[in-house]
Amino acid sequence: DGCIQFTRHAGDVLLNFNRLRSRNILTDVTIQVDGQQFHAHKAILVACSGFFYSVFMDPENANLSAISLDPKVDPKGLSLLLDFMYTSCLNLNDSLVLATLNTAIYLQMEHVADTCHRFIKSRH
C-alpha cells in the first residue's frame, strides 16, 4: 500500500476558489473599504489573515456578512493581498509596495509584510 500524491492538487483547488470568487459563487462576506467592495470566502480569509481569523473566530461575528475596514486601508493594497490569498502570487511594484506593506500589517499577514520589507530594502 502507498499514497499517491497529486502534486497539482493544492494549486488546482486554489484556482477553483479563485474562479468561484471572480464569479461571486459561494462567497459569504463582502469587505468594504474606501467605498469599494470585495467579495470573498471567509474560510480563505481566516486561513490567510490573522486579522480575519480574530474577526470570524469571535462568536459575536458568527453571522457577519459584511465588514468595513479602517478607512486608512488602501483598496489597491487589499486587492493585491486578496489576489495573493487566492493565487499565491504577490504582485509587488515600487508604487504599491508601501500600501501593500501597510495593508499586510493591518491584516496581520506578517510573512507577506516581511517580504514587502525585504523588497523595499532591496530597492534602496
Binding site: D1, G2, C3, I4, Q5, F6, T7, R8, H9, D12, V13, L15, N16, R19, L20, S22, R23
Partner: peptide, 21 residues
Amino acid sequence: HEGVNTIKEMGRSIHEIPRQD
C-alpha cells in the same frame, strides 16, 4: 505519511471551474 511509499501524480486532480457559465 512518513514511512509510506508515496508516488507523485503530476496530472490534474480535480475538475476546473470555468471563468464563466
